[in-house]
Nucleic acid binder design. Structure first.
Lengths: 345, 345
DNA sequence: CTGTTAGCGCATTCAC
DNA sequence: GTGAATGCGCTAACAG
């Protein structure tokens, strides 16, 4: 026992088993082992079997640090998000993950919040891993971030919203259009006294912006607005509604920057005995199809986060499969969104 | 223009700028650059400045693949989760991320769902990146996964629940105890006709188990139970409630495996005009402090996902700081949980 | 405080 | 189908 613990004290390397050990055990050369593991079809079945057995025997675990260094393909994709506490972003992660793992890639996750400078240093760190691709959400990137990305030449997808001048590729939808469409929908239903309840993130701002512009065009007015910390959760929704309704009892519609906030508003409305949507209309945004299950169901704008994630991953994979010779494609994909109207109005 | 495109066609290496280039530009040796970047305090301020300038000049980006290979420290921590579409798990990711990035580590994220075999192959892939530490959620690992982990010797934290024999370290709480405590709480309030609405994930199963055992001990009975696909979302909660209440109108309490499910049940209860908690008690589980903002507020068991994530990360960092010489500590931390009683009962 | 030597573990040429 | 030589970019261990 004493002897054992003495032995284990030595600074034994993490995993002593290398390709060479496997090669010896299998009676072949290292490169053959490498091929057997990475391109089995280039190896005679017999030797393949020998190698596989040797791998099991030795307990070999491939070293992608070394592999990546030698081949300059890390099989890593980085994903940068402001938060994952939002259903849509969680879905986006899920969608991207599914697609990437299926293709043998792994995900490096960066969560940066909504402060630009954090993204900047994170991107720097990420690049040091030499990922084969990067998925960024939003496009509030500083100039130096853009420069860096362009300089390195790693394929980049800007997901979640659309930008006129993507760094490389962009996959998402227009947040301003969302606001626009919501405004028109509510106006058509006859609502006229609007409030906005929004989280303070840039994209929510774009939706709000679109909403306000459209409302103004029709001569109606946004009476009040309340901004909460991003990502707005249900409590902020309810608290925000309290504030808005207390100060402006005449409101007949509240436009929220997320379904979660909308749900909070609904709860408060119910508490006050307001009928939704007769007395008060509430509009959300997101992909929480659960807004169908609230009582009453809420109208909302539906966005498919998983799809955006999957498409983003796929765009990177396509580029990578292309041998890397394809120059920036300026590929822009509008994934669109859907206005879901629920209830009688 | 033609010339340019011809030039860019060449298989130019991803980032030609290496430490050596920086060293030349700064007029020092490569190792000095390395130190200037990684251990600035070991370098004279003057040369440090020269190096930093050279870095900017050349646009150098550090290569952690090479660095990790040479030093066998990847500065990478892997996190394996069944899903991130659960508030608590999202919080866990956030908590771990915060702690890790503060310490200069990056997060490799694996999402495996609830199938054991997926975890097994994912762990294999993860190990090939030579992470400095691994955070696993739950402890339903196959034997070969355990073996592998032990063999490699990478520090491992099993987070989220407690296991009698952790692979290395465990940080979480007892899910059976949660069920136990909920049962006692409800019994004390006088409820007697229970139903269970649970997602089919192992930990939820443990809570359910604890609940049932405690109920049985008191001679009360669990009349019905309904299992939904993990992770249970709000729709499944409402649909589950419909089924349970239709088939068993006599129910006076429903124990849910998550707050989200509980919320769905609440909505259905309200639809039916049931008073909560007078006619029907609903218990949730999770950390959604938003259950305080439902109307009426729901009683629940509160778990701090962010804390668990942060503690797990910290445990790994402690181990790593220890120089790696400390053998498996069998460290087990019970983070506990809290029963939150809301409403008059 | 800084430089020299050596090698981390693998994949990319080519040969055979 | 398989093997031999070379280098990816960096850091450990020593020396000065």
């Amino acid at each position: 026992m004493i002897l054992l613990s003495t032995i284990t004290k030595e600074p034994m390397p993490a995993n002593p088993v290398t390709l060479i050990d496997v090669a010896k055990a299998a009676g072949v050369s290292p490169i053959t082992v490498s091929r057997a593991l990475n391109e089995p079809h280039l190896v005679k079945p017999a030797t393949l079997a020998k190698v596989q057995e040797a791998v099991k025997l030795t307990g070999y675990v491939k070293n992608m640090l070394a592999g990546g260094l030698a081949s300059s393909r890390s099989k890593l994709v980085a994903l940068v998000l402001p938060t994952i506490s939002t259903q849509t972003f969680a879905d986006l992660v899920q969608g991207a993950t599914d697609r990437l793992t299926a293709a043998g890639y792994q995900l490096l996750l960066g969560i940066v919040g909504y402060e630009t400078w954090r993204e900047e240093i994170l991107v720097e760190t990420i690049l040091s891993r030499r990922p084969d691709g990067i998925i960024l959400t939003g496009s509030l990137h500083t100039d130096s971030t853009r420069q860096r990305l362009l300089q390195i030449g790693t394929p980049v997808v800007e997901a979640w919203d659309l930008t006129p001048h993507p760094i490389d590729m962009a996959i998402g939808f227009s947040h301003e259009e969302v606001g626009h469409m919501c405004a028109q929908h509510l106006l058509k239903q006859g609502y006229r006294r609007f409030a906005i309840l929004t989280a303070n993130d840039p994209r929510a701002g774009q939706r709000t912006q679109g909403f306000q512009v459209a409302i103004a065009k029709h001569g109606a007015s946004v009476i009040a607005s309340h901004v909460v910390q991003a990502p707005g959760a249900l409590p902020q929704g309810r608290l925000g509604a309290i504030k808005l309704l207390d100060e402006h009892p005449e409101l007949d519609a509240i436009f929220c920057s997320s379904d979660t906030l909308a749900h909070g508003v609904l709860i408060e409305a119910q508490s006050r005995g307001l009928r939704v949507p007769q007395d008060l209309a509430i509009m959300g945004f997101g992909d929480l199809n659960f807004s169908e299950y609230t009582n009453p169901p809420l109208s909302t704008v539906k966005v498919d986060g998983a799809k955006i994630g999957a498409l983003s991953a796929q765009a990177l994979l396509d580029r990578l499969a292309g041998g890397g010779d394809s120059a920036p494609a300026e590929r822009v994909v509008n994934t669109g969104f859907e206005l879901i109207q629920r209830g009688s109005t």
